[in-house]
Design a protein around this nucleic acid. Structure first.
Lengths: 106, 106
DNA sequence: ACATTAATTTAGATATAACTTAAATATTAA
DNA sequence: TTAATATTTAAGTTATATCTAAATTAATGT
């Protein structure tokens, strides 16, 4: 039972490579669970459990269509990660010079 | 399929809240281990172990000064995270409109 | 109603992570 | 050289993650 911590933890959710891969697949468009399972070498249940972690972190949304559960990416949830990472850009920029400023969109 | 541990795993390193907090402290400037330990409610050894994970992920550097080991942030290592996250910005932008474009630095 | 399909949940096994205390290493100070 | 300081590494414990197989829920098809 993958207990998803008290707080929906986006950082924890994307720490697992399979979960990042799931998100990458969903980036191309929404998919039912079976289509995701087909991309991995683990059981249906394992993917379902990963989807739960992603959903509780707000990284994916689920739309139920008959007996198909269709998942889609919710990239807004990555905001937390982007914001935390962005706090390092000043230091980064200082060290890298022009390249850093470019990454900063300036 | 992305295998875990293929490379020093930055995503895993920043998944742990205490490790993010350590990085946040180092963002203000380099510090010896004792100064970091003082900010937490765990043992010296625990922090030392977290520092090892961060160092192996390339997120911190260590400078040995006498019997002090002075750590500093290596924000370039967050590049991996920023790049992966950035792949979601097109979808994001599409959904959020102007705000998305702003985040994109346009 | 019953079987089939799609997915989730539960239970249990095993692996990995995070912590503690104690021992080890290395540097400085008496 | 012995003691004190600063940190790491090792050993062992406990907690958490991830996986499989089996049970469960729910919708569809016959």
């Amino acid at each position: 039972m993958p207990e998803p911590g008290e707080t929906p933890d986006v950082f924890h959710a994307i720490a697992e490579p399979k979960r990042r891969h799931i998100l990458d697949l969903l980036l191309e468009g929404e998919r039912p669970v079976q289509a995701l399972v087909a991309e991995f070498d683990v059981s249906f249940a394992a993917i379902s459990q990963h989807l739960r972690v992603l959903r509780e972190a707000g990284l994916v949304a689920r739309r139920i269509d008959g007996r198909k559960h269709v998942y889609s990416a919710e990239p807004e949830a990555l905001d937390t990660v982007l914001e935390w990472t962005a706090r390092y850009r000043p230091l980064w920029r200082k060290r890298l010079g022009r390249l850093g400023r470019h990454l900063d969109g300036q």
